[in-house]
Design a protein around this nucleic acid. Sequence first.
DNA 1: ACTATAGCGGAGGGCTGCCTCCGGTACTAG
DNA 2: CTAGTACCGGAGGCAGCCCTCCGCTATAGT
Lengths: 191, 191
Amino acid sequence: MTENPRPALGVAVKRPQRTDARRNFDALLSAAREAFAEHGTGASLEDIARRAGVGIGTLYRNFPTRQDLFDSVYLGEIDELCAAAVQVADLPPWEALEAWLQRFVEYAATKRAIREELNSDSEAFRLARDAMYAAGQPLFDRAQEAGVIRTDALFDDVLRMVSGLTGAGFVDEEQRTRVLQLALDGLRPRP
Amino acid sequence: MTENPRPALGVAVKRPQRTDARRNFDALLSAAREAFAEHGTGASLEDIARRAGVGIGTLYRNFPTRQDLFDSVYLGEIDELCAAAVQVADLPPWEALEAWLQRFVEYAATKRAIREELNSDSEAFRLARDAMYAAGQPLFDRAQEAGVIRTDALFDDVLRMVSGLTGAGFVDEEQRTRVLQLALDGLRPRP
DNA sequence: ACTATAGCGGAGGGCTGCCTCCGGTACTAG
DNA sequence: CTAGTACCGGAGGCAGCCCTCCGCTATAGT
């Protein structure tokens, strides 16, 4: 799960060579994932090191800045999300877009830090946003050309709408799905 | 603007008697409003005191806990928002609901702290949520009875959807309005 | 087995924020 | 004007976080 060496979105921190070092590296990554999800962007680095059962020095050696750690945790996942866009490509236009967005919300809903950062203008997240656009725009265009999305809607509108929904704190998964569908129905052409 | 003594939502901190003390009290409130909007719930209290040109002791005397300050800043405003629900009551059902929600988004969009807290389960914000429900539900019901809102939508869905949109970070006010309208269109009955 | 070295970890200095406490200030009533 | 007191403000103790530095340890190649 964490040992995937894929060069996510071009921003990378190199994984150490020695086996013990790799174990620590992975433990840090997974501790950070937890902490960021729980406390958002500002999670304590010392706490992350503690969770990982590792000295604070080890954290800093692997990830010199908070941003490095943050990027390592999330960019890979965003990458996967983008990849999911091609997996839905064989569905009908509307269903494909819907499925992808649903997956996006599902993913982001539990990641407080992602939500905080999504609207920020940090370097790495500009990349992430761009990637999301590159992945989603074709789905959107296809649906629009097929006439199942009103012509006055922009993909940017949709993405931001869905980003917002992501942080809305629903009572359960079911409501989340329901509301997303409600909102997406607003995209259909009015008769 | 800040000298309104209305007992907002029942949670209150009493405003001091002496004129100089009242000046400080108001200065704190307005500094806090700024700071909370800017840095969210975790804004530094010492910074707020500084902005208000007041000693930290004065802040703590007036607002013993962060929550007290927070409540004093926001509950009054929420109260106003609820009051706005009756002001739109003479519009047609759909337009009334739309206008009220639009106003809600407009208000909350600039208040980072509100967004953070809206989904929390803090005591005071349960009150606020309840008040919002009491204010908005009638608008919603009326629209639903008038047949301009699909029957499978719940008011809770709508409120959460709109809460979410509130934190979506749009490029400009125009986009915010547009997206909200898009999302709300999803509430209309499908032909 | 042995050694060179990649990697470890936590002590420590600096910083910021929280909150209390109390000597001093300045308003207001008379 | 004066006295009583409501109110001020910041020094100071505590806590948590950031980040660096360096003596020690465990690994990997021979």
